[in-house]
Structures are given as C-alpha cells and as structure tokens.
Design a protein around this nucleic acid. Structure first.
Lengths: 342, 342
DNA sequence: GTGAAAGCGCTAACAT
DNA sequence: ATGTTAGCGCTTTCAC
C-alpha cells in the first residue's frame, strides 16, 4: 500500500507529477525519461490510488447504485448485467441494493428502501442512482437524491420529478404479442397486466388495446387484470380473469414471471395450454424454452436498458437528448409452444 | 449537503461532539440538553456524514465486493440476496461484480476479473471480498487482496491461500439425492458433476460415490461426467454419459442448471424423464416446479451461505472458529416429477 | 518541465 | 463535559 508520496520519492519527482501520470492526464508535458521513471516506479511498487482520498478530493465516489426489487428475478438480473458492463466501461462499480429482503420485513409500509442506500445517497457515497420502478418508488430516496443533486434515473416509469427515465419499447412489444395471437385466429384475447399506475403498464395495455381495436376486436377493461411480478400472483390473476370472461382463448401477459403462474394456475383448473388457451408473454428468459409448455415470448432489450441507464447518468451515449429515452432496439417475437391456432 | 462543521456551528458545540453523536458513540458523556440540541440540528439540517471523508479517516470504505460469474443465474442470485441482507445489517453495501460480461470478451484467457474490481481492491475501495469460485479464481485479485490484506472469503472451494472458505453441506446433499434414487429402486446411477478440481465438486461426487458404495452398487469413474453451470453444457454431458454407459437409469446432477440441459438433451434423444431416466438435481430454484418435467431437487442453504460469507468477513456470527465454515442448515430433498421408480 | 501548498470532511488523541 | 488540532492520501491551481 504505497502512497503517492512514496512513488514520488522513489521516482524523484513531485507528487503532482505522479498523480497526473497515474491518472493518464493527456495534457501533461514531461520528458520521456521522467515518464518512464514514474511509470516504472508505479508498476514496481504496485501503486494504486487510494479510492477514499480520490473520492474526497474529487467529490466522485466511482460508484453507481442500482436498486432492484428482486435480484433473483432473471429479468432484473439481465438489466443489472447491462448496467454493470456499461459502468465498468466508464470505470465505475455497481452497488446493488435488493429491496426484496427488506420489504419482507416491512411489508406493511407503503414502500421502503434499505437504510444503507439512504445513507449512501445522503453521504454522497454514490455518483448516481438507478431505480427500478415497481409502483411508487421510495419517496425517501427520491427526495434525498433530489436534495443532494445526485443524478437519478428511473427505469420503466415516468414518476415525474425532473429525473431521467429509461423506457423499453413497451407498446410495440404488446402489439407484437397481440398481433401474433390475432394472426393465429384468436378474437377474444385477455391481458394480464403488471402493477397499475406505472408508465410501462399503461404502454403495454395500450399496445394490447390498440391492436385489438385495429382489428375490430373487443378490448374492454373486464378483459384486463393486474398482477405483480410473481408466479403466485399470476396464477391468481389468470383465474380471476377466466372466471370473469370465460370465453377468452388467449392471454397477453405483460411479464413472463406472472405468465408462468398463469400457465400453471390455468393448467390446474383444467385448461390446456395452448389447446384451450394460448399464452404470449413479454420478456424472454433463458428458462422460457424449458417450461412445462415452452413459452412464446417477446424478447426485450433488457441488457441495453441497463446500459442506457448508466449512460444517461454519465451523460454520455446516444440519445442524450431529453429526460426520457426509449431503447430503440426492436422487441423480438419468439414463437414457442404456448401459443396455437384458435 | 451540510458538513459536520455546519452542524457544530448551528448547535454551538465542537465538531468532535457532533461526530460522536452522529455515530452513536456510547461512551460519550454530554448533558441531555446538549445532546438534544445536536440531534435536532442534525435532523433539521438533514446532515449525513460524507462517506469519502469517513472512509479516508477510518480506512474503511463501507463496501464489500461480491464477485460472481453470472448474476442472471438464480443460484448466485440467492447467494447475493443473503450477502446483501447480512451486509445491510452491519451497515455495509454490496458491490457487485459480474464477470460473465467480461469473460465473454476474454474467453481465451485462463481467468479474468473486471479491472474495476482490481482497482477497487488495490485502492482499498472495499473492506472485503467474496469470491464465487468456479475453478481457479483470478490470480490477479487473489494476489492483490493478499498483498493489500483485504479480507477475502471464497465460496465453495478451498483454494488454500490462507483465506476463509465457506462451504455448503455438499456431500450430504449428494447423499440425499443418491439415496432417494436408490430408494426408488435404481441401481445404475450416473453423476453429472460440476467443474473438476473444486472442493464442492469433489464433495458432491464423494457423496454420490459413498452412497452407492454403501449399497454395494457400481460407482466407477465412467459413470461421472463434468459440465460447467450452463444448460448447453448439461445437455452435452448427459449425452456423452449415456453414450458411454447406456444402462444408466438415473442421474444425480450436481447443479440444477446443467440438469435442465440434461433433461432437455435426453428428451430430444428419445429418453423419457422419468420413465427411462430419473433426474435429481442439487439446488432448488423457483422455476424448478414449472419445468417441462418438474425437477426433483435438493434445496441448499444458499441465502445462508451469503450471510455466512459476510459474517466471516466481518469476523462476527457463529462458527467464527477456523478458516473453513460449513453452513450447517440441512439440505432438503424436494421430490417432484423428474424421479420415478426404476 | 516540474514543484509547493492548500485543503476536501471527517475522527480521535489530547487538551482544558 | 466540551474544544483544539493534526492529519488520512489525494488533486490542482499557481509559482518557478
């Protein structure tokens, strides 16, 4: 653990020079010989700048926080991979905050975020904050981030406090799924939507609705149910929907996790997939082909969304225009066994 | 972003007092009135200690790094959740490093770790390091961590450089799976093992072998194949094994991810699961019941392993004895459809 | 082309 | 019971 001063002494220059060499300062003009001496000393002594000192001096921690609700969910995992890759490219590391554990303990509260994250943001421990929205992201953190001027980007929901928002091509994905089902001859198509009140929920329902509308098919609210992103919730919601509108022959699921629940719940109630009911889900995951009935999915650019979120924070990357960026990678329909002819 | 000095000024005490109040120093003796004034100022001004300054002063970053190979894999996700929960309890945050992205780019190298992580460890940016072993964890980071005296715990493999190691009850899990198959009447049982040369691989093979041995059944090396933790690799390995020992009627898979591959690969080759071949896999994941054939699994204390790793770093928690701690939560057999009578 | 020096915000040892 | 002070290791003007 040699310090800057040690390297300076060893290479017989001032700390200032070493600092600028170590940080690759392009505007530094020194003789080739000096540079060689310094670089050699850095290498030989194994010098690495002390992060804490750098942070204190520069008011930049080198960390970006990513708060997700369940890191075990492969959908979020893929976003995290993208964010991690992009962060690494700009020399930042990702601090992961999984609220699922915490939420279990405080399920009665409207919304919570780990104290650690609050302290981190409040204490300038992170240079930016990426928040996975699930319906009313923590006021505590939002307020704090705003107050501390910590850049913040919200994924998937425009909760409007002047932050940046990154959205997926949600409406298009729902159109793709719905169009596929219509193409198979289905005319009575339900929608198993995500949590109400979120930007992406609205966009996906709109995609479903408008596609049906364009074909002159029914799309009233009785054919829409909402479920959070869990298997159990999906099973319940699908049962509710089928009890209400028993004539439905196909289902657009706005998230693959509850779609799996829907598939199982319906199977248990005697429906056959896809013979009695077809299911198309948004988000492709590695397990999708290996489910009880291989799931027809719409693959979304999740990795790219992680990348975009980090780029938005860093103020770099393409589409650096406004407060909202939509990933423009086309969603991709992957037809498997869960959808069949009407 | 008020500083310590601001709060001190506002509450008319010295910075030292504010510091000790803010950090909950139990050995601090001040009048109730002073304490009230200080606490009120802290609250009203929304003061939070600057992380960088604290780190510099205390030589403690408040971060723990967790390096896994694929955060998208639910097995690792569960470990991360445990580590995150335990870290939060001791006021630390988790820095996630997913090497999967990086490895893709540098697949030709023996082993790599993101530069960010190296810089972090080298620059004392993390107080500890948790490394998921997968067969020869990065020399670079190991050496650095040792050199910088950064505490390090390795998950699942005793790669012996004086670090702490956390192990699961691996042999017992394999015994459980093997015993279950024997109980169903199987006598020719193969083993689809994890990467060779790792502590946990050896322990699981030993569990398989000894259980067969105790029942006087065959357990020679021709009945063992190795595969990394991917679906594709599992499919290949299972095919290889069946080509070699076609009389096998059951398979113990040391990891559920390649087990899924094995199930699919064998199905494609005309084997029926479980009619022609039974499959029991180590590690239970939420999707296990919803696979093409619901998978019989042995649930391992993954969350607990994450917790134990953090506790080992922090030098707290039970079993703080030696350099190796084995999670003593019993593995649990969950019988589903992938195993049947011989 | 190179060096000197001031501080980033905090904590802990040592006064008072 | 409370205050003073000396750095932690680095970056960055500014001076030479």
């Amino acid at each position: 653990m040699p310090r800057l001063a040690d390297v300076a002494k060893a290479s017989k220059v001032s700390p200032a020079i070493v600092s600028r060499v170590a940080n690759g300062d392009r505007s530094l003009k020194i003789t080739a010989e000096t540079r060689r001496r310094v670089e050699q000393a850095i290498r030989e002594m194994g010098y690495r700048p002390n992060r804490a000192a750098q942070s204190l001096r520069s008011a930049q921690s080198g960390f970006i926080a990513l708060a997700v609700h369940d890191i075990t969910n492969p959908v979020y995992g893929e976003i995290a991979r993208g964010a991690g890759a992009a962060a690494a490219r700009i020399g930042k590391a990702l601090v992961m905050s999984d609220s699922s554990e915490h939420e279990a303990e405080t399920a009665h509260l409207p919304e919570t975020v780990p104290d650690t994250l609050v302290d981190l943001v409040g204490g300038h421990g992170v240079d930016g904050l990426i928040l996975q929205a699930n319906g009313g992201a923590s006021d505590q953190v939002l307020a704090l981030a705003a107050r501390e001027k910590t850049p913040m980007v919200v994924l998937q929901a425009d909760i409007g406090i002047g932050d940046q928002v990154v959205l997926l091509p949600d409406e298009q994905a729902a159109r793709l799924a719905t169009g596929h089902l219509i193409g198979l001859g289905h005319t009575r198509i339900g929608c198993l939507a995500t949590n109400p009140g979120l930007t992406f929920t609205g966009a996906r329902i709109a995609g479903w609705r408008r596609t049906l509308e364009a074909h002159g098919l029914r799309h009233d609210d009785t054919r829409v149910v909402h479920a959070p992103a869990t298997i159990a919730a999906g099973a319940d919601a699908a049962a509710t929907l089928l009890a209400r509108s028993g004539d439905i022959t196909a289902l657009v699921c706005c998230n693959i996790v509850p779609a799996i629940g829907a598939m199982m719940g319906l199977t248990e109630r005697g429906y056959r997939v896809p013979d009695d009911i077809s299911i198309a889900a948004i988000h492709d995951i590695p397990m999708a082909p290996f489910l009880k009935v291989a799931m027809t999915t719409v693959a979304m650019p999740l990795f790219e969304m992680g990348v975009a979120a980090v780029e938005a924070l860093a103020g770099c990357g393409p589409g650096d225009g406004g407060p909202v960026r939509i990933i423009d990678t086309e969603p991709r329909l992957i037809v498997r066994a869960s959808t069949g002819r009407a």
